[in-house]
Amino acid sequence: MLTSDFDYDLPPELIAQEPAPVRDGCRMLVMDRHTGALEDRIFRDIAEYLQPGDLLVANETRVMPARLLGTKRGTGGAAEVFLLRQHGTPLENKSALWEVLVRPGKRLKPGTGAVVDFTDAAGEVALSAEIVNWVEDAQKGERLARLSTTLASLDEALHAVGHTPLPPYIKDYAGDEELYQTVYSRRESSAAAPTAGLHFTPELIDRLREQGVGWETVELEVGLDTFRIVDEDDPTKHVIHTEYYSVPQHTVDAIAETRARGGRVVAVGTTSVRSLESAWDAEAGTVTPRDRETTSLYLLPGSEFHVVDALVTNFHVPRSTLMMLVSAFSSREHIMAAYAHAISERYRMLSFGDAMFIH
């Protein structure tokens, strides 16, 4: 097995630069994971492939306003701070340490007193970031920044100055940032959206519930490494990123009930897959509750799936761990044939693109 086995030619014009006009009106490629048989459908048709007693499990994380554009104090030079994750506990309501990426890196080094100020819509400084240290074992030059504000809280300040980050392959999108959030998102904890869920509408979820399909959630805090391609020729040498995830008791109970009545567990997105399979307790032979634990689960062809029976997903970046995950869920041959079909049929690809349903 080589990383190049999961590569394919992605025409740049097929990378969706904006969401579908109607969330559940996008296209959906349906694939039988065992035979590779394909059908071209519309996303709302997923109701025809779900049975009473099936259970959908979605990642309810919400994308933070993590992209901060400001100026370096003292010089006025443009600077960007990208929030990755909070470091430790808040120092107080108006101050906290965060792990961040910065640009320009050479001018925002720890120990130099570098501070970046961010202004609100009225032009007033609402948030400041002092670069105080390097992150231990950093892979991409991550730094620790002390965020502080004069507003009532950091949360208020972030929403006054921050922007929802979009994937690097989406250029110049100026539409509604809320369209890069799922309709069921809750706590802001991610740097990227769990994009398979972008296709669901409240009306579709209600219709599925009326049909007897269950709906439960997990939370996995999606990091920027979700966009990272595998550089090693041997994919087994790749060190996958670590993310925090939670699986609540009510979801564990719903999975047990689904299994008892012969229904299927349908993961909405690869992040839900990683959460559910990470929560599998082999000794107990069941899923167990998890509360913000870490996972570095790496699913490759040959990996076993204990919890997930079907998968709603998007089309993924070539040579990514996500290509390997969906190949593990079906087979490399079936997935590559499906992608070749999608490209020939001009499906819209990646985060804002069309969907797949693998069952």
Rank of each mutant, 00 (worst) to 15 (best):
L84M: 09
G105A: 13
W98V: 00
Y49G: 07
P90F: 06
M1N: 10
A192C: 08
K109Y: 03
E178Q: 14
L322N: 05
G76T: 12
G175E: 07
H163N: 13
P21Y: 07
L84C: 11
A310D: 04
T270F: 09
L50M: 09
D233C: 03
I229W: 00
P235S: 15
M31F: 08
A328V: 02
P65E: 11
P318E: 07
L84V: 12
M64I: 14
D231H: 15
S327I: 05
L224G: 01
A256R: 09
N59S: 02
L69F: 14
D176P: 06
F352H: 09
P167A: 14
P104W: 10
A78W: 06
Y347L: 02
D253K: 08
A193L: 09
S185R: 01
P12G: 02
Q51M: 05
E39S: 15
T164G: 03
T226N: 02
A121F: 11
A114Y: 05
G175T: 07
V63S: 10
A267D: 00
P318Y: 03
A191E: 13
V100S: 03
L350P: 11
P318C: 07
L97E: 15
S330I: 13
D24R: 10
D354R: 13
L29S: 12
S272N: 07
K72R: 15
A16K: 04
H241A: 03
R209L: 07
V30Y: 05
I205Y: 04
E216K: 11
A96S: 15
L29W: 11
T71A: 14
E92L: 01
V161M: 09
L151A: 04
R23D: 04
T201R: 02
V115M: 14
F118V: 11
A355R: 08
T236F: 04
T3I: 03
D234M: 11
H334I: 15
M31V: 15
E219K: 10
Y245N: 00
T242M: 11
L55S: 00
R274P: 04
V230T: 07
L97C: 03
V247E: 00
A78N: 13
V218M: 01
H334L: 02
E219R: 13
T321K: 06
G197H: 09
S320I: 07
M28F: 07
V30W: 09
A193Q: 02
L220F: 01
T251E: 04
L325C: 03
L276N: 00
V308H: 05
L300Y: 15
R23G: 01
S351F: 08
D9F: 06
